[in-house]
Simulated scan of single mutants.
Amino acid sequence: MPEYKTLSRTTGATVLTLVAVACAAGLADVLRRRRGRPRAHRPVETVPRQHTPHGVPVIPRQRRTGPDGEAVRLTPAERDAFAVLVRHLSEGD
Rank of each mutant, 00 (worst) to 15 (best):
L89H: 12
L85W: 11
Q50R: 13
P60I: 00
L7T: 11
V47Y: 00
A83K: 05
V58H: 02
Y4L: 08
A13P: 07
G12Y: 09
G36L: 03
G55E: 01
H54T: 14
V72Y: 04
I59L: 13
R9S: 12
T52R: 04
K5V: 10
R32W: 14
A28T: 15
V19E: 07
E45R: 06
T52Q: 11
V58A: 01
T65M: 07
M1F: 09
E78F: 01
P57H: 08
G69K: 03
S8L: 11
R63S: 05
H88Q: 09
A77Y: 00
D80M: 02
A22G: 12
A20S: 13
A22Q: 02
L89D: 15
G36Y: 02
T14H: 09
R33H: 04
V58K: 07
V72P: 00
L85Q: 12
A71M: 12
A40H: 03
D29H: 14
A13K: 11
R79K: 13
A40T: 13
S8G: 04
T17I: 09
D68C: 10
Y4V: 10
A77H: 03
T17H: 12
R61S: 05
G55N: 01
E3G: 08
V21T: 05
Q50T: 02
P43F: 08
P48S: 05
E70K: 13
G12I: 08
L27E: 13
E70R: 15
P60Y: 03
A24E: 02
